[in-house]
Write a protein that binds this DNA or RNA. Sequence first.
DNA 1: CTGCACGCCTGCCCGC
DNA 2: TGCGGGCAGGCGTGCA
Length: 287
Amino acid sequence: MPELPEVETVRRGLMPVLEGARILKADIRRPDLRWPFPENMGARLTGARVNRLRRRSKYILADLDTGETLLIHLGMSGRMLIDQKSGPTGIDAFFHTLPTPAKHDHVVLDVDSGARITFNDARRFGAMDLLDTQQEGTHPLLAKIGPEPLSNAFDGPYLHASLKTRKTPIKSALLDQRIVAGLGNIYVCETLFRAGISPKTQAGQLTKHAAEGLVPIIRDVLTEAIAAGGSSLKDHRQTNGELGYFQHSFQVYGREGAPCTSPGCDATILRISQSGRSSFYCPSCQR
DNA sequence: CTGCACGCCTGCCCGC
DNA sequence: TGCGGGCAGGCGTGCA
C-alpha cells in the first residue's frame, strides 16, 4: 500500500482509538511477517498503554507506557482495520460479536477504548518490532533515514547538497530513504512531472535552482495526498475502510499510453523501468 | 563509498 | 474456464 500519505492517513485513523488506550489482548497469529516478531511480543504488548502514536517516514510508532515503542511497517500490502464498539454494548460482549480473523489477519489488538485493531498483510512485506523508546535513533530500520519532507529540516540547500554528488537518476535518488523520508514510487513520479524533470536526469546534473525547486513540490504533493486520505490502488483502505481519493489526481502514475494532462501538450505518457521500478513520465513536459 | 539486481510473498489482470 | 506470465505502493542484502 503505503507511502508517507497513506501511512499518515492510517496513523490519523488509529489515533482516536489507540492513543491513550490500553491493550487488553494481543493475538499474534503467526510468528513473523518479513522478519520474526520480537520475542514474547504478545506478552509485551498485553496490558501496555499507548501514550502516543507517531509516524516516522513510512513507519508508525506507538510509544507504550512500558518504555518500549511498537514499530509498525505496512510493507506493500499492509492494512490496519478498526472495528469499533458503538452503543451500550459491554466491551467483552462487543469483542464476542466480531467475526473470527480473516485470511492474512496476522496481528489483532483489542483495546480498552472499545476497538479491535487488525493488521492484515497479504504479501507479508510488512514488519513489527519492539524497541527501547529511548534508543529509537539506533534502530537499524530508522537510523539512516533522512529528514521528514514536511519538516523544516528538509529545505532547498539540504536537498541540493544531497543530490549534487549522486550519479544515479533523480527518480532513484528521491526513492532513496536516506535522502528524504517517505517518498515511494507514486509520489516521486508525480513530483517529477510537476517539476518538469525527466526521471532519467542524473541527480547531480540538476541545477541548484531545479534541485531546490523540488522541495516545495514534494511538500505540495504529499500535503494534497494526505488531505485526500492517500491513494487507493488495489487495496489501500483508510482504517475506517473508506478509500482515499488522491489516485484521481494522478497526472502520470499508472497512465502509460494516456494523453498528457498538461494544457497544449499532445504527448503520451510513457513507462520505463529504472532500478526495477516503473517510472511514468511525459517525454515532452519532462526534460 | 555508490549503484543496481535480486528476493521476499500473495493476488490480480491479461492474453492465449 | 484454466494457465502462465507479468505486474504491484518497499526495502534489506549482496555484488561489482
